[in-house]
């Protein structure tokens, strides 16, 4: 095994081009587990901790440019207003120690169906900026996940930034674990209101081979909110609409039975989370979250 320590982004790209099988390591929260347990013996380990831009973020007019290695704890502390869904999800990742190391870039690189950051990226709207010595491209996050632990990166590419749309309405994230902390998701769910476009987005983790948007549920709910004129009213989402939205989210799942939970439970739980998180975001929208980039977590002390 060889240890590569590129000191700059350009060096990192060059090293990756030279050794396409090199495994990038930033927080190490996935890679080191595989090394410690003899599940992986890459020819090259490439440390990205020395590449400064990967640890920085920049808030623009409409979006946040998030360095791939920005740890979850920084997101929780600094980006709650701009990226409330992601900040909530960040808070559910592993433990405080893991949140100090793990990052969205790492989550995307591992492309686990259970990655906690994936649903809020899908509901906020995000693009993954991948780069190689050949050049740079932006991959919509919907197209990024190509299979279980597989992603759209070419072998010489590295993730540099994730461009995430700033919230224009309330966002929520919820995840099922069989323990009250430090747990991998049995399944996860995110919902985001986009009042400016009168759209709702919903996304699910760990209930299919890849994280996915429940588009049918999104379409149904967006249409229902429009038809009932709810965006401009002060009314709640009718229970029948919330119920149908939840059913459609459940129906979109293609889960499996595994040690963490049954397929039937995952489908069921996604429905419950969909209904509850919709209630929370709508409640905060009614309470003044409309139109603004307000971070509302349903009044919850959780991010």
């Amino acid at each position: 095994m060889e240890f590569l320590r590129p000191a700059s982004w350009q060096e990192a790209l060059a090293a990756k081009a030279e050794h396409p099988s090199a495994v990038p390591i930033a927080g190490g929260t996935d890679v080191m587990v595989e090394i410690n347990f003899d599940q992986r013996r890459p020819g090259w380990l490439m440390d990205l901790n020395r590449v400064p831009e990967l640890h920085e973020w920049e808030t623009g007019e409409d979006s946040v440019r998030l360095g791939a290695s920005v740890p979850y704890s920084r997101i929780m502390e600094n980006l709650r207003a701009e990226l409330p869904g992601l900040a909530l999800a960040a808070h559910t990742v592993g433990s405080p120690q893991i949140r100090n190391r793990g990052s969205v870039g790492g989550n995307l690189g591992a492309a686990s169906p259970a990655g906690d950051s994936h649903p809020p990226l899908l509901t906020a709207g995000a693009e993954v900026e991948a780069e190689s010595v050949r050049g740079s491209r932006r991959i919509p996050v919907e197209e990024f996940f190509t299979g279980v632990k597989r992603n759209a990166l070419a072998e010489d590419e590295l993730i540099k930034y994730v461009h995430i749309k700033k919230a224009t309405g309330p966002q929520q994230f919820s995840k099922i674990g069989t323990r009250n902390a430090m747990v991998i998701a049995v399944c996860g769910f995110s919902v985001a209101l986009h009042p400016e476009s009168r759209r709702v987005r919903a996304a699910v983790a760990s209930a299919a081979p890849t994280p996915f948007r429940a588009t049918e549920a999104e379409d149904f709910l967006s249409a229902a909110l429009d038809e009932e004129g709810l965006w401009d009213s002060d009314r709640i989402v009718p229970p029948s609409v919330a119920r149908r939205f939840a059913e459609l989210c459940s129906a979109a799942c293609k889960p499996i039975d595994d040690v963490r939970g049954s397929a039937a439970y995952r489908r069921h739980a996604v429905g419950v989370m969909a209904r509850r998180t919709l209630t929370w975001v709508w409640e905060s929208y009614r309470n003044g979250g409309r139109g603004g980039a307000r971070n509302d977590e349903g009044g919850t002390r959780c991010a």
Binding site: R5, M32, I35, N36, D47, Q97, I98, R101
Partner: peptide, 28 residues
């Protein structure tokens, strides 16, 4: 040795991290 127990917690440049998940070369 998989970041699930915290017994190896150390401060790395001030942050609490699991030492088992930091590659030695990263600490240079």
């Amino acid at each position: 040795e998989q970041g699930e127990c915290g017994s190896c917690t150390v401060r790395l440049d001030g942050e609490s991290v699991c030492a088992c998940l930091v590659a030695a070369g990263q600490v240079e």
